[in-house]
């Protein structure tokens, strides 16, 4: 028997509805450790919701999500789904990190404070060690000299790079990126994508990237996933998929992109 690699993220038939609106209609996806996956799709396709479900920022109504083998948000008890205790949810979330569209840096902490907060308050890392590591990470995103600045004193691109450093500081097994360049002025997109490209190249961490940046999706990702209408429509090698889309829906989506 061949070695079976334990998947890093396993999504099986996940369903989610907001009132009458079913936004995820049975999504399945398996992601291996170190893989970089880009999810693309029109707005309302459910890609952001899926990402938020992986971090349990949204509950889901059916199916299972497992991260590193651990079920997310629920446990099984006699065939029924029982919500996990808040503590266990928090523990799971600490293993995954998320970078948000609106950065969501804590405005009352400096850049360094934002980066060291998780390690000191959740992981119990000593202050000095966290600070040293935090400065290292800020250097990695090119913001070593901004360590003492508050978020309001930084540009959007700089804030997003701090947010990436904050996520990295948790040594996450999986990093989730939710349209991280959408809120940025066009001239600031490049610096953030460069940091993400560096991360992807190092293959140290599993990345799931919801994005509108086709170049990033094509060049940095190992796999491309196209979602529409709450399901995965097509997935595969990025370049091949973009050049030779199989489904009508992906063709239509890409056409709109080229025209834009």
């Amino acid at each position: 028997m061949a070695d079976v690699i334990q998947p890093m993220v396993e999504i099986v038939d996940v369903r989610k509805r907001f009132g009458d609106n079913e936004v995820l209609k049975g999504v399945s996806l398996t992601i291996t450790p170190g893989e970089v996956v880009s999810i693309i799709g029109p707005s309302g396709s459910g890609k952001t919701t899926l990402l938020r479900c992986i971090n349990f920022l949204e509950t889901y109504d059916g199916g299972w999500i497992r991260v590193n083998g651990e079920p997310v948000g629920y446990r099984e008890k006699g065939g029924a789904r029982v919500p996990l205790k808040e503590k266990d949810v928090a523990k799971l979330r600490a293993e995954t990190a998320m970078v948000f569209q609106q950065f969501n840096l804590f405005p009352h902490m400096t850049a360094l404070g934002n980066v060291t907060f998780g390690p000191t308050h959740v992981r119990g890392v000593a202050k000095d060690a966290a600070k040293e590591r935090g400065l290292e990470l800020l250097a990695r995103v090119g913001l070593r000299e901004k360590a003492d600045s508050y978020p309001a004193q930084l540009s959007g691109g700089q804030q997003q790079r701090v947010a990436i450093a904050r996520a990295l500081a948790m040594d996450p097994k999986v990093m989730l990126f939710d349209e991280v360049t959408s809120a940025l002025d066009p001239e600031l997109v490049g610096e953030v994508l460069a940091v993400m490209q560096g991360l992807a190249d190092s293959h140290g961490v599993t990345m799931i990237v919801v994005t509108h940046e086709m170049h990033f999706a094509r060049d940095a990702a190992d796999r491309l996933v196209f979602m529409d209408g709450g399901v995965v429509v097509e997935q595969g090698v990025p370049a091949a998929m973009i050049e030779d889309p199989q489904s009508e829906r992906l063709k239509a989506f890409l056409r709109r992109f080229h025209n834009a």
Binding site: N55, L57, E86, K87, A90, K91, L92, R93, A94, E95, T96, A97, M98, F100, Q102, F103, N104, L105, F106, F117, G118, H121, V122, R166, M170
Partner: peptide
């Protein structure tokens, strides 16, 4: 902003630390 609670939860904070610190 709602994102602040998202960010705090994503770091693995439970309710009371999130309230106290964020």
């Amino acid at each position: 902003p709602k994102g602040q609670a998202d960010a705090a939860k994503a770091l693995g904070l439970t309710y009371w630390p999130m309230m106290r610190e964020i």
